[in-house]
Simulated scan of single mutants.
Amino acid sequence: MSSKIRFALIGCGAVASAHAKAIAALPEAELVAVAGRTGDRLRAFAETWGGLDAYPDYEELLRREDIDAVGICTPSGLHGDIALRVAEAGKHALVEKPIDIRLDKADAMIGAFRSRGLKLGIISQHRFDPDVVRLKELLEAGVLGRPVLASASVHWYRNQAYYDSSDWRGTWAGDGGGVLINQSIHTVDLLQHLMGTVAEVTAHAATMTHRMETEDTATAVLRFASGALGTFSCTTSAYPGYASRIEIVGSAGSAVLEGEALTQLYLNKGDGTGEVNEADAHRAASDGTRAGGDPAAGMGKDAFIAQYADFASAIREDREPSVNGEAGRSALAFVLAAYRSSAAGGGKVTVNDLSMDQDTAT
């Protein structure tokens, strides 16, 4: 490996710019190449980011021996197949969310990278937001007591033009589903990161306001492996859009995350003191926490850089990335359990009972 970790990107759509910005911000990394299927967009992206080597065929890019790691920024349904080729080429991969749209593909990815001693990371940059890190530490230290209840919501807005902009958006084959697997996957991951894995899901999903193949609205009732209970709701029909929200109730206190900000933190100290919000009172939500903004926007920009820095360190230190393949699989399993429950009319689904080849509920 050279003095810098040499990255390439596969995919040059909107999210690829967030990857490129993060790599550019790291002194220990450099972006050297990009692959994409759309010629004009590929050339423009390559020029914008300093004259990158551009490849219309990612297989040609993977044959380069001087590339250490690849960021995969393609439609969700392509993640697994491309990642497996990256592993076969002997390169590390940081994959956009979700890990894939099928559990069997996710398992194949995890096995392929681990068997070769390569690093597989999944984008979930909001785990690196300072207030998320703080809340995770408080929960692990038992400050809020035993987990009791959690509720999460992603009430964003997307107009019809958003779904019409690409033929893969809002489809089972390309997107793996709708609002639950696309816009909500970050909150799904954070909820389990903070509360532990979900064991059972009872869900309903529907297409309420858009013309699309998959759902724009979903709700679920949850039971966590710890025994705690929870709810999850999401939609892209909530005009004009609101910050995502996670509310956690413990036996000794409660906390609320709104967007990336910890806005409420109340601890029951049992000493007769009054109710005091111990969250940072003056923390202001940035643009990225508002109106259903894209996950990489606002405060999430710094978190995106932090995740790339963590991934680069994992390569250099030969350790697991903080958000590894198993974490991505766990979020996907939650989503697929919800889809299976909805397809069955809202029946209870045990997440661990999902078959290895479980596909989305077409």
Rank of each mutant, 00 (worst) to 15 (best):
2 S>D: 12
5 I>C: 04
7 F>D: 05
15 V>Q: 11
17 S>C: 11
18 A>Q: 13
25 A>D: 06
30 E>Q: 13
35 A>P: 09
36 G>R: 09
36 G>L: 13
41 R>A: 15
46 A>Q: 05
51 G>W: 12
53 D>R: 14
54 A>F: 11
55 Y>F: 15
55 Y>K: 08
63 R>K: 15
67 I>A: 05
77 G>N: 05
91 K>S: 07
94 L>N: 03
118 L>T: 03
128 F>C: 00
138 L>S: 01
138 L>V: 02
150 A>P: 00
153 S>W: 10
159 N>W: 11
159 N>T: 12
168 W>L: 00
168 W>H: 02
173 A>M: 01
175 D>C: 01
184 S>F: 02
185 I>H: 00
189 D>Q: 01
192 Q>C: 01
198 V>W: 03
199 A>P: 00
232 F>W: 06
237 S>M: 11
244 S>R: 13
250 G>S: 07
253 G>R: 12
260 E>S: 13
262 L>W: 08
267 L>P: 02
272 G>K: 12
273 T>R: 13
276 V>N: 02
281 A>R: 13
281 A>D: 10
289 T>A: 12
293 G>A: 15
293 G>Y: 08
297 A>V: 09
298 G>S: 09
299 M>F: 09
303 A>I: 11
308 Y>A: 03
308 Y>N: 05
311 F>N: 03
330 S>Q: 06
335 V>D: 06
339 Y>C: 04
342 S>V: 10
343 A>M: 11
348 K>S: 08
352 N>Y: 11
361 A>Q: 07
